[in-house]
Design a protein around this nucleic acid. Structure first.
Length: 500
RNA sequence: GGUACCGUGGCCGAGAGACUAGGCAGAGCUCUGCAAAAGCUCGUACAGCGGUUUGAAUCCGCUCGGUACCUCCA
């Protein structure tokens, strides 16, 4: 896997054989998650699933940033209606709970496995304060007016041989000191590059805790250092997150942790996913171009031509490499939607094949070898820096073979029973277990399969109409179901299948 | 301004010195009562200009265009 820290691909080797500790930076729950947030959590979910599949016991920690300096989105607009705003004022924890729940709901829609631990920043104020105290005791932080800042310059000098400041993000401290920028609280810092460990809370600030330095709240970076070491130890295997977190967030984490843990580098492998873009621009709050996940699922957004199923999004993400930017577009998403549908139907066709009907040897040795090669390559591609795009490309090369067997264009004697069995197994493992994909057209779980029963009745009626050559009736049934989004297909063997 | 990165056929997107990536859309054909689905076939792309090389989309240089980070950010 590609390690951002060393800027090279490295073979993965866990610190403790058989075990993996993985920390992924979670969301800031001051507002609703958007499409951009889907990428890291799908990407690292697949990594988690893959490592688990490989037999590792993985402890996956993904934090929830629910403390800090933020206001509810849209609040400013509401403030214009001043009197109303007072009445509708939300308790900070209420706000944070609302968006945390919404985030978890969205993760479930994506079929992301729940992390082993999902620690919240507010639940670890004590740990963060302790860590700040330690950094101060070591002489790498100073207090000013109730806020505590990290002394980057001192760290950079003392740790230049172990974990040099700027190594992860490719930054030169001297260059950074030259950038002029007016920032809040800048005048309190000894140096522009310093960052806050603890911030004094102004009277109107919604979240505040008591600390040795007065009432305030933790700086953004300290939570990850504190919580990762608490649950994964001073050194763990994988640290993941979006590329935009590389600096200053991850750089700061490294610095804080190095001081508290005797110069140990907190994580061995640093993985960063690239951004989802929209018209070539990063999707982000500050660009005013976000599409929230709820909007994506419902289709209610001016940029959306239709609603998109969470599995379409998941598949869309997996069709590209995680370190490339991925450009959003209706045409692209619709392409993914159709592609996934076709792939999934091929997969279902495959699982319906009866392996015992295949011979012990392959009638078409060349095709048989090709199939085996394509399947073997799944792991090869995934082992090369998680290239899910290539794995999926192989699956699409297998689809015509599967459909060909079903459709009769390929003889059942062409492939050996062993190959079919292997194909069935591996497709299941990769599609469902590792990629975490699900049938995108599955009927809602609520109808208990009643819909299927109803459709079977209609299929039977249509069959009878067809038998007496009453094509008007049979076509009417088919067409009317089609307008409801249910498609009937007359199969070659006389049966009728349907999909949504 | 500093530091990286990117520019692939109508769209999305792999690849990275010689090999058809793949998907969607489009065209033709086969099967079919019709349709859909499925299968088969097709497009021969790598920003531009130079250079290195037997050979470059892939390496080097320049030009043009774009993005990200340097501030909260997935």
């Amino acid at each position: 896997m590609y390690n951002s820290y060393t800027r090279s691909k490295e073979p993965f080797q866990s610190i403790t054989p058989g075990h993996v500790g993985m920390y992924v930076c979670g969301p800031t729950v001051s507002g609703e998650s958007h499409l951009g947030h889907a990428r890291p959590y799908v990407t690292f979910d697949v990594l988690y699933r893959y490592l688990t599949h490989l037999g590792y016991k993985v402890r996956y920690v993904r934090n929830v940033t629910d403390a800090g300096h933020f206001e509810e989105e849209g609040r400013q607009a509401e403030d214009k209606i001043a009197s109303k705003a007072v009445l509708e004022k939300l308790e900070p924890m209420e706000l944070v709970t609302k968006y945390t729940n919404l985030f978890r709901w969205a993760m479930k829609q994506f079929n992301n496995v729940e992390p082993s631990i999902e620690p919240t920043a507010t639940g670890h104020i004590v740990e963060q304060i302790e860590m700040i105290k330690k950094i101060m005791a070591e002489g790498y932080a100073y207090e000013k007016n109730g806020s505590v800042y990290f002394d980057v310059k001192k760290y950079a000098e003392d740790f230049k041989d172990s974990n040099p400041y700027g190594k992860l993000s490719g930054r030169v401290l001297d260059d950074m000191l030259e950038t002029t920028r007016e920032l809040d609280g800048q005048e309190e810092k000894r140096d522009k590059a310093d960052f806050a460990l603890w911030k004094k809370a102004p009277p109107e600030h919604i979240m505040r805790w008591a600390s040795p330095w007065g009432e305030g709240f933790p700086g953004w970076h300290i939570e990850c250092s504190a919580m990762s070491s608490k649950y994964l130890g001073e050194e763990f295997d994988i640290h993941g997150g979006g590329m935009d977190l590389q600096f200053p967030h991850h750089e700061s984490e490294i610095a804080q942790s190095s001081i508290c843990h005797h110069g140990k580098l907190m994580a061995r492998y640093w993985l960063h996913n690239n951004m989802i873009t929209i018209n070539g621009k990063k999707m982000g709050k500050s660009y005013n171009n976000v599409i929230k996940l709820t909007e994506l699922f419902s289709g209610h957004h001016p940029l959306l031509e239709q609603a998109y199923h969470p599995m379409t999004i998941r598949f869309f993400i997996l069709q590209s490499h995680y370190r490339s930017t991925l450009d959003f577009g209706n045409e692209a998403l619709q392409g993914s939607e159709k592609a996934l549908k076709r792939l999934w139907e091929a997969y279902e066709n495959l699982q319906k094949l009866d392996a015992t009907k295949f011979g012990s040897s392959a009638g078409d040795a060349q095709l048989d070898a090709k199939v085996n090669k394509l399947v073997t390559e799944f792991a090869e591609f995934m082992n090369d820096d998680l290239n899910s795009a290539k794995v999926i490309a192989n699956m699409f090369e297998l689809a015509p073979v599967i459909n060909g067997i079903k459709g009769g264009q390929i003889a059942t004697t062409a492939l050996s029973a062993a190959t079919i069995t292997q194909l069935q197994l591996q497709m299941k493992v990769w599609l469902e277990d590792i990629f975490g994909l699900q049938n995108p057209s599955a009927a809602g779980a609520t109808d208990d399969g009643k819909l299927g029963g109803v459709i079977e009745v209609l299929i039977q009626l249509r069959k009878e109409a067809k038998a007496r050559k009453d094509y008007q009736t049979s076509d009417a049934i088919r067409n009317q179901l089609m307008t409801l989004g249910i498609q009937l297909k007359d199969e070659k063997d006389g049966t009728v299948s349907w999909s949504m």
